[in-house]
């Protein structure tokens, strides 16, 4: 590994560079946070730090049924889609990385194709299909397309993880008296866990942030997710500027993502497989 210059000057240089990157990335977020804490009167005063602080915006959004309902939809739909995609993806990725079965290349190719397919071109056909089948504006109506697009992602990330786990471990487990299922559960699964969590985070974020499908395949509060609900936001009254409330909602919906990442981050221990084989 190349070692970098670690003198005080170099440290300062890197520190500055890091600060620039962090500030650059965080300014829009902080701005939204700042907007969400301003009163309606000072909303457009252009100050970065609010002159009048208030939590009214937060109170307001949790009072509106519209937002709470959307939040429940979002959490439910994203969690279910993530769960199904990760379970199916794990099985598929395991098979792909371990077995040589007929049609394997085709399966991998098709899933790659799906991942690259422009989602927007599927919106109208999906809309029509869901209208016909009664899936329109229901949870499954969103969960199904989410799984379709999340699966290739899951399969790809997971098979990369499975490929890192030495084949010999599984053979060793079998020699030690494990059945195929026990070998998977007791030896392979614990080692694949970081990969599964990483995939879960990626899939969850994908489902949580989706706007395109959510706006095209829903029409009522029954299944509208937060990103869509936000776009329908009005203030307390029709004549009030909803910016403050939208900002507060935007802040609220980033929290689950942050929690989700923080929660799983601990489990993503890199290099967990080191020491399995020689080295």
């Amino acid at each position: 590994m190349a070692t970098l210059d670690t003198g005080p000057r170099a440290k300062l240089k890197w520190g500055l560079l890091d600060a620039v990157v962090v500030v650059f990335a965080l300014i829009p977020v902080l701005w939204v946070v700042s907007l969400s804490l301003k009163t309606t009167a000072t909303l457009t005063d252009g100050n970065f730090i609010p002159r009048e602080w208030t939590l009214d915006n937060y109170r307001l959004i949790f009072q509106t049924d519209q937002f709470v309902r959307a939040l429940i939809n979002s959490i439910g739909i994203a969690l279910i889609s993530t769960l199904i995609a990760v379970v199916l993806g794990t099985m598929a990725a395991y098979a792909i990385s371990r077995l040589d079965f007929p049609g394997k290349a085709l399966l991998v190719g098709v899933s790659l194709l799906i991942a690259m397919f422009p989602q927007v071109s599927l919106v109208s056909p999906l809309f029509n299909i869901e209208r016909q089948t009664g899936l329109f504006d229901t949870w499954p109506g969103l969960i199904l397309p989410y799984i379709t697009f999340a699966l290739p992602l899951a399969i790809y990330t997971l098979s990369a993880f499975f490929k890192q786990i030495p084949w010999d471990l599984e053979k060793a487990a079998k020699m030690d008296g494990a059945t195929q299922a026990e070998a998977f559960r007791k030896v392979i699964a614990p080692l694949a866990a970081p990969g599964v969590f990483t995939t879960a985070i990626l899939v969850f974020i994908f489902c949580w942030n989706d706007f395109l499908f959510a706006i095209s395949l829903t029409s009522t509060e029954q299944s509208r997710t937060v990103p869509v609900a936000l776009s329908f936001f009005t203030g307390a009254s029709q004549f009030e500027d909803p910016t403050g409330a939208i900002s507060a909602a935007a802040v609220v919906i980033t929290i689950p993502i942050i929690l989700f990442v923080l929660f799983f981050q601990k489990r993503i221990v890199a290099g967990l497989t080191s020491g399995a084989v020689k080295g």
């Binding site: 030495p166 060793a172 967990l272």
Partner: peptide, 12 residues
């Protein structure tokens, strides 16, 4: 019982 060239120890 089998001993593998790579040892195949369970790292976890």
């Amino acid at each position: 019982a089998m001993v593998f060239q790579s040892y195949a120890l369970y790292p976890n």
